[in-house]
Computed example of a mutant assay.
Amino acid sequence: MQLYNNLSAKERAELIEKAGQERLTISFYKYANIGNTTIFRNHLFLAWDQQEVLGRIYVAKEGINAQLSIPAENFNTFKNHLDTISFLEDVRLNIAVEHDNYAFLKLKVKVRHKIVADGLSDHTFDVTNKGIHVDAAAFNELIEDPNTVLVDMRNHYESEIGHFKNAITPDVDTFRESLDLIEADLKDHKDDKNLVMYCTGGIRCEKASAYYKHKGFKNVFQLEGGIINYVRQVEEAALENKFLGRNFVFDQRRSERISDDVISNCHQCGNPADMHTNCANEGCHLLFIQCERCREKMENCCSTPCMEINRLPVDEQKEIRKGKGNSNDIFKKGRADHLPFKKDLRNIFDTFKKTV
């Protein structure tokens, strides 16, 4: 019985090309009480491997978080299988704005402690006691209310390339950091302000809304289905799109275009740019924003030393990396010191504080 992926990314890419089938990129999540996570994980892998599902799926006692791709012709089979699982029946599926057949090249179903790394040790709040879900139309109306504080629950490198108009974008590296930061800065407005949150697909806001209600916030709202679902609703209902730039996604695409606005800059030359790249030097692999001109000039690398290493024969590169692991810069995601136009650190609540 095969319970794990046994093909390399290269082998899978060749199979996808040979098949010539359109693939859909999909994400979904659900908080639920899962008893035996290992049995559930194995059940999903066996079923989805047969359906040619590829992606990254996390299973935990608290639920499931999935980002995946599937041949379009297998979608109904996939959906029917989900509906046989009691807590996933009619679960909302966020279908990507832009599809890429190579968005995922392996099927990875992993058992984790939590489906979102929140770092919380507080187990006294009920994650199902969440904020009010609002659709795109209600969201557009709500964020125009002067009594509303709109907060982006994503990390700095996500919001840097795209966010909603007038949103507070916490300058944080992790979801956990934003939880305490937001509570501290809005503590005097738990009763008199609408706290409206959004994220990529809704999963971070789901937990954050329950957490803030637990902390005493009275009027807590979240964008249902996140940015992905918002864009689809805006297009279907011909609503005004209030999102600027690109939506960061966690697959090979890295982002998808939502509006023509370019709100960020190349971290190497400072010119307008909003496409992330990973440094081609396998010993670095830093995620940063790079324009087309710098990508060509720097050969997809973040620095001259990385470019020089990347030009070496593969065996020599491996010898240099031997026993070292990745550079710590990999965790800085656009904040490495050698990037001259990296995003400045700032107190994103300063403007808000001056207006209340």
Rank of each mutant, 00 (worst) to 15 (best):
residue 300 N to F: 14
residue 165 K to N: 14
residue 256 E to L: 06
residue 35 G to T: 04
residue 98 E to H: 14
residue 114 K to L: 15
residue 205 C to L: 07
residue 236 E to N: 07
residue 212 Y to R: 08
residue 121 S to F: 15
residue 60 A to S: 15
residue 221 F to W: 03
residue 117 A to D: 12
residue 263 I to S: 11
residue 295 R to Q: 13
residue 62 E to K: 11
residue 208 A to C: 10
residue 147 N to M: 06
residue 222 Q to I: 01
residue 340 P to I: 00
residue 17 E to A: 06
residue 64 I to T: 15
residue 72 A to Y: 12
residue 285 H to E: 12
residue 181 L to D: 08
residue 28 F to K: 08
residue 61 K to V: 10
residue 104 F to S: 07
residue 318 K to G: 12
residue 141 E to Y: 01
residue 292 E to P: 08
residue 295 R to E: 15
residue 134 V to W: 02
residue 43 H to K: 13
residue 94 N to V: 13
residue 57 I to H: 12
residue 100 D to V: 10
residue 138 A to K: 00
residue 241 N to Q: 13
residue 194 N to S: 05
residue 101 N to I: 02
residue 297 K to R: 09
residue 177 E to H: 01
residue 270 G to A: 12
residue 226 G to L: 08
residue 302 C to V: 03
residue 218 K to M: 01
residue 198 Y to N: 02
residue 272 P to I: 08
residue 11 E to K: 14
residue 101 N to C: 01
residue 231 V to W: 06
residue 336 A to Y: 00
residue 299 E to Y: 09
residue 5 N to S: 11
residue 75 F to I: 12
residue 127 V to C: 14
residue 101 N to L: 02
residue 250 F to S: 09
residue 31 Y to C: 02
residue 57 I to P: 05
residue 97 V to I: 03
residue 158 E to M: 05
residue 169 T to D: 03
residue 235 E to G: 07
residue 85 I to T: 10
residue 278 N to P: 03
residue 14 E to A: 14
residue 112 R to G: 10
residue 77 T to L: 15
residue 94 N to K: 15
residue 146 P to Y: 05
residue 167 A to R: 07
residue 92 R to I: 04
residue 30 K to D: 09
residue 172 V to Q: 05
residue 145 D to S: 04
residue 127 V to A: 15
residue 176 R to C: 09
residue 149 V to M: 07
residue 169 T to H: 06
residue 99 H to A: 04
residue 236 E to W: 11
residue 20 G to K: 11
residue 346 R to D: 03
residue 232 R to M: 04
residue 104 F to G: 11
residue 304 T to P: 04
residue 109 V to A: 08
residue 314 V to E: 12
residue 104 F to T: 13
residue 291 C to P: 09
residue 46 L to W: 09
residue 143 I to W: 05
residue 238 A to D: 02
residue 219 N to I: 01
residue 3 L to T: 15
residue 338 H to I: 09
residue 161 I to G: 07
residue 220 V to R: 00
residue 189 H to C: 13
residue 30 K to F: 08
residue 209 S to L: 03
residue 71 P to M: 13
residue 92 R to T: 07
residue 119 G to H: 09
residue 260 D to H: 10
residue 70 I to V: 15
residue 111 V to K: 12
residue 96 A to H: 09
residue 248 F to R: 01
residue 117 A to Y: 11
residue 103 A to D: 15
residue 170 P to M: 05
residue 262 V to A: 12
residue 195 L to K: 05
residue 127 V to G: 02
residue 334 G to P: 06
residue 211 Y to D: 09
residue 145 D to C: 10
residue 282 E to N: 06
residue 198 Y to R: 07
residue 44 L to F: 15
residue 339 L to C: 04
residue 291 C to I: 06
